[in-house]
Nucleic acid binder design. Structure first.
Length: 456
RNA sequence: GGCCCGAUGGCGGAGUGGUGACGUAACGGACUGCAAAUCCGUGAACCCGGGUUCGAUUCCCGGUCGGGCCUCCA
């Protein structure tokens, strides 16, 4: 099936045409690990995890290589380590672990490759050296800077005219820059700062060169898809594109550039660490929102559209999840059924998740397809078919609410008591039991075959 | 100030030059001792003003409002 994706560089939907269909390469800018991930950080993780599932479905799991880096050297990390008086590794390991756990709770699988900036410094130094040798970068006062005006293609991705960028520069221009638009590839480290030896002295890489070097190292010169948040479009991706193109003699860095939109806070503003109005994934999980609810909420709008993160959105997503859970009920299955073709087709059209959800509604009566589709989408509560023994009966959703045999027995006893009361037409008593259970979050349903219960 | 994007029912949110998806919520009915769940049904929207067109929510221009980027940021 042809996959069409919106490419930021050309501002059009392009059909994915992999350089090598046996090795479809996707790179997404990962986290800088110095704090807990907020739900806005989770949007690209979930979006590109979903795209990766689609790619694997189409090309075969073994023919997709997904790299998501870990930025583990950065001034914020250095500051955080200094504040806690610990080595930077203490900070980066801690928050990388949290990140993987938080994303895992949202059904985001680990990428195939997770290059770390600190272990790719030699590649960065080499790429900087290449850029200097080719006349695209210059050294000045311990720094190495990229010569922006020397690259004619600069500004194409973000559609920014170079002269306006220079004229509109709001930051005080460092005196060693030839042009205000030039950006740092390498900067010197003081004695107490982490640093690596280089032809330009002891220092550390600039942020942008990290991704360029890690992409070349882990995936190759020209990759099929490069993703990230809209805010990375400029300057980060613009700079990546410039560096890689110049270092690789004009070979394009990526054939398709994808950017996800932002999450709003429901008050019009965006969620951002610098504004301090973040809601972390950890918080949301602690509040009792299951991972599949959060994932569904993130997929409820098209990935390029802004999405307001509100309590109402979560409640609507939760209602949908619970409905699916009831629909599927105890579902006997050995293997994960296949996703419905309409669901796959909707995703193949630039990851149109709202259309995908509409397709899902249309197939709700087909439990097999519904389950296969929900599992395919990576919703954490609907994954158990993968690990179930063939033919075993299982109840969906138990993966997120731990089974407790003791509580189950208690509820069963109360249900039995209520059934007896109803048989005796003692409705005051039966309603009392039902209210009591409801207060404990247990919802009773009287069906033709007797009373069943579920957690609300 | 420069650049860019968006505006669809109570809410969320696709899409389209000609009957405006889907979800969620609301309401009515069936079912139920009553509920819940389920089923059936109902009402409910394309920011404003021009233009192009036989016809515009969809295309073009202007405006209003909202958001983003230009500085670390998903």
């Amino acid at each position: 099936m042809a996959i069409r994706l919106y490419d930021t560089l050309s501002r059009t939907k392009k059909q994915l045409d992999p350089v090598d269909p046996a090795r479809v390469a996707m790179y997404v800018c990962g986290p800088t690990v110095y704090g807990r991930a907020h739900i806005g950080n989770a949007r690209p993780a979930v979006v590109f995890d979903t795209l990766r599932r689609l790619l694997r479905h189409d090309y075969g799991a073994e023919h997709v290589v997904y790299a998501r880096n870990i930025t583990d050297i950065d001034d914020k990390i250095i500051a955080r380590a200094a504040a806690e008086d610990v080595p930077i590794e203490t900070i980066t390991r801690r928050y990388e672990g949290f990140y993987l756990a938080d994303m895992g709770a949202l059904g985001v699988e680990a990428p195939d490759l997770a290059p770390h900036a600190t272990t790719s410094v030699p590649e960065m130094v080499a790429m900087i050296g290449t850029l200097v040798a080719k006349g695209h970068a210059y050294a000045a006062q311990g720094h190495v800077l990229f010569d922006v005006p020397a690259f004619a293609g600069y500004g194409a991705l973000s559609r920014r005219p170079l002269d306006e960028m220079i004229a509109g520069a709001r930051v005080e221009v460092a005196p060693y820059k030839r042009s205000p638009a030039d950006f740092v590839l390498w900067k010197p480290s003081s004695g107490d700062q982490p640093g690596w030896d280089s032809p330009w002295g002891r220092g550390r890489p600039g942020w942008h060169i990290e991704c360029s070097a890690m992409i070349a190292q882990s995936l190759g010169r020209t990759i099929d898809i490069h993703g990230g948040g809209l805010d990375l479009q400029f300057p980060h991706h613009e700079n990546e594109l410039a560096q890689s193109t110049c270092a690789h003699d004009g070979a394009p860095l990526a054939n398709i550039w994808m950017h996800n939109g932002f999450l709003g806070m429901g008050d019009g503003g965006k969620m951002s660490k610098s504004l301090g109005n973040v809601v972390t994934v950890e918080d949301l999980l602690a509040q009792g929102w299951h991972g599949e609810v959060l994932r569904l909420a993130l997929l409820s709008a098209h990935y390029r559209q802004p999405l307001e993160w509100t309590e109402t959105l979560l409640e609507q997503s939760k209602a949908k999840i619970e409905k699916w859970r009831r629909l599927l009920g105890p579902f006997p299955s050995g293997q994960r059924p296949a996703p419905h073709p309409d669901v796959v087709a909707a995703l193949a059209d630039d990851l149109n998740t709202p259309a995908m959800l509409a397709a899902l509604s249309a197939i709700e009566s087909d439990a097999e397809s519904l389950l296969g589709s929900l599992a395919f989408l990576g919703l954490p509560g609907f994954q158990r078919a993968d690990t179930m023994a063939p033919g075993a009966a299982w109840r969906l959703g138990t993966s997120v609410v731990a089974d407790d045999g003791h509580i189950d027995a208690q509820v069963a006893a109360q249900v039995a008591a209520r059934t007896a009361a109803r048989a005796a037409r003692n409705f005051a008593e039966s309603d009392r039991i039902r209210d009591e259970l409801a207060a404990a979050g247990i919802i009773l349903e009287d069906g033709a075959g007797g009373t069943t219960w579920r957690r609300g």
